[in-house]
Design a protein around this nucleic acid. Structure first.
Lengths: 152, 152
DNA sequence: TAATGATATGTTATATTGTAACATATAGAA
DNA sequence: TTCTATATGTTACAATATAACATATCATTA
C-alpha cells in the first residue's frame, strides 16, 4: 500500500464515511476526533498513541495523553479504527460498512498493515469455537511477516 | 480448566518437559527461570509480568523488572510460554513438543486461557496468506469471550 | 595457571503506554 | 433558565517495558 496507490482517495473515503456514519448515529465527529482520525490515516502504518499526541500538538496545543486516548476510544467504539494489540498501536479501518472480523497482516519491513476479510478463515474459526463451546466477543488475529510488495 | 482438573499434573508435565528440552538444547533452566515458569503455571490464567515480580520476591529478594522480563524472554524463546498480546500477559504452553501456531481462547469470566491447535483454522489461514502473498513469521490469534464452563 | 569468552544476573535509571479523578465548557432539552 | 448529557482540560499517577553498565560464574584454552 505504501507502494504506489492514490492515498488521498483512501483518506477521503475514510473521513467521508466516518462523518456520514456519525451523522447517522447521532454522535459527534468533533475537531479533535477528526484530526486524530486524519493523523491515523496519514499512511497505512500502525500509529502509536504518543506519536499521535506529538503530531496533534501543532493543532491542539493543550493536547494531553487523555486527549488522544479518548479520541481513540471513540474511534474504536465507532469502528473507524482498529487497535493492533501486538503493537500497541492503531490503524484506520478500511471496511467501515461491513460487520466483520479483521485479519491484520503486519509487514515488518514497510510497517504497513493490511486488513482482510478472510471469510474462509473466519468460517473455520467459527467452527472451531463452536466445537470448543466458546462464545466469542472479540477477535484479534494479527499476523506478522513480510508483505507481497516487500518480497522482491 | 479452573473447573475440576488435576492441576498438579499440568504443572508436573510442564516442568518436566521444560527441564528435558533445556537439557536437549544445551540451555540452562536456572532457578529464576524455573521459578518464573512455576509461577506462570500456578493456574491457567494469563499472568502479568509485575504480578510475577511480586510473587517471586519471597524467593528472589533481589528481583527487579529485568529479572522477570529476562526470564520471560528465555521461556518464550524456548517455547515454554506464550505472550498474550491483547492482555500484556503470559501463559504456559500446553503443547511443548509440537511445532504449532496457537489459537488462544481467553475467558473474560474465569480468566482462563485455553490453547488449541485448530488445524483447520491454521490451514485456511495459510491459504489466505498464500493468496495475499504474505510470508508469516509470527501469528497472534486471540479470541476473547466466555468459555464453555462459564456458560451455565 | 591465568586469561578469555559466553552466559546469567545485579542494579540503576528511564522510556513507553495507559488511566483515574476531578474541573470546566458547551449545547440542546425540559 | 436550569438541567442533563457530552466533550474536553488538567494534574497526577499507574502499569508495562527496556537500556546500559556492573558483576558473577563457569568452562575453555592459551
Amino acid at each position: 500500500m505504501t507502494h504506489s496507490h492514490n492515498h488521498t482517495a483512501c483518506v477521503q473515503v475514510a473521513l467521508t464515511n466516518a462523518a456520514q456514519l456519525c451523522a447517522e448515529r447521532g454522535v459527534q465527529l468533533t475537531p479533535i476526533r477528526q484530526q486524530v482520525l486524519e493523523l491515523i490515516w496519514a499512511n497505512h502504518h500502525a500509529v502509536k498513541a504518543y506519536d499521535l499526541l506529538e503530531r496533534i500538538k501543532p493543532l491542539q496545543s493543550a493536547a494531553k495523553p487523555a486527549t488522544i486516548y479518548r479520541a481513540l476510544d471513540f474511534l474504536m467504539e465507532q469502528g473507524f479504527i482498529h487497535r493492533v494489540e501486538s503493537l500497541n498501536a492503531f490503524i484506520g479501518c478500511t471496511d467501515l460498512r461491513t460487520v466483520h472480523e479483521q485479519l491484520l497482516l503486519i509487514c515488518k519491513q514497510c510497517q504497513d498493515v493490511e486488513e482482510r476479510q478472510a471469510n474462509a478463515v473466519m468460517q473455520s474459526l467459527a467452527d472451531e469455537l463452536k466445537e470448543a463451546g466458546f462464545t466469542a466477543h472479540h477477535k484479534a488475529i494479527e499476523i506478522h511477516g513480510i508483505c507481497q510488495n516487500c518480497q522482491q
